[in-house]
């Protein structure tokens, strides 16, 4: 069962107020759930739909369009690894493979200890610091194997 906490309810009220129509609050609400739960379950989609007078199908339709909303539980840290042109030219493919190997999730996925979810992502708008990755909300740029080791090892 998915329920909004009272803290959520307060946030949701504020979010909905920002828009002329309730429907517009859909992405912020999905984001709220994604951040708190790490993924968006069918029950959460239903709860969001109820809040915004939208069918759960519509919520899923929007949710499934975006790759940054996850449908399965994710790890404590979500690593979005850019592999678009600038990063690729600067060696992102190798670094991604390295990271996958290091975490034991080649090709991406969630580690057994549920600490990391590794995920390839298209351009994250930081080409100037390519290659880069984003861990939760933090951008890490100009990556090298050593830098990746250092960053991942330092995470609690």
């Amino acid at each position: 069962m998915f329920v909004f906490t009272s803290e959520d309810e307060n946030k949701i009220e504020k979010i909905i107020k920002k828009y002329p129509v309730k429907q517009s609050a859909l992405l912020p609400l999905l984001t709220l759930v994604q951040r708190r739960e790490g993924y968006i379950s069918p029950e959460a989609m239903q709860a969001i739909g109820k809040k915004l007078d939208l069918s759960p199908g519509y919520v899923q339709s929007v949710m499934s369009f975006y790759t940054m909303y996850h449908t399965e539980p994710t790890g404590k840290y979500i690593i979005l690894f850019c592999h678009n042109i600038s990063c690729q030219l600067n060696g992102a493919d190798n670094l991604f493979a390295y990271t996958g190997q290091k975490l034991g999730v080649s090709g991406g996925g969630t580690t057994e200890d549920k600490k990391f979810t590794l995920h390839k992502e298209e351009c994250l708008a930081a080409c100037c610091g390519a290659p880069m990755m984003r861990i939760n909300d933090i951008f890490h740029e100009n990556l090298t194997k050593e830098k990746i080791d250092q960053i991942l090892d330092s995470l609690p």
Partner: peptide
């Protein structure tokens, strides 16, 4: 032009 950015590549690419 790529995705909205100017990318300069040399002949090795």
């Amino acid at each position: 032009l790529g995705s909205g950015a100017l990318i300069v590549m040399d002949h090795t690419v």
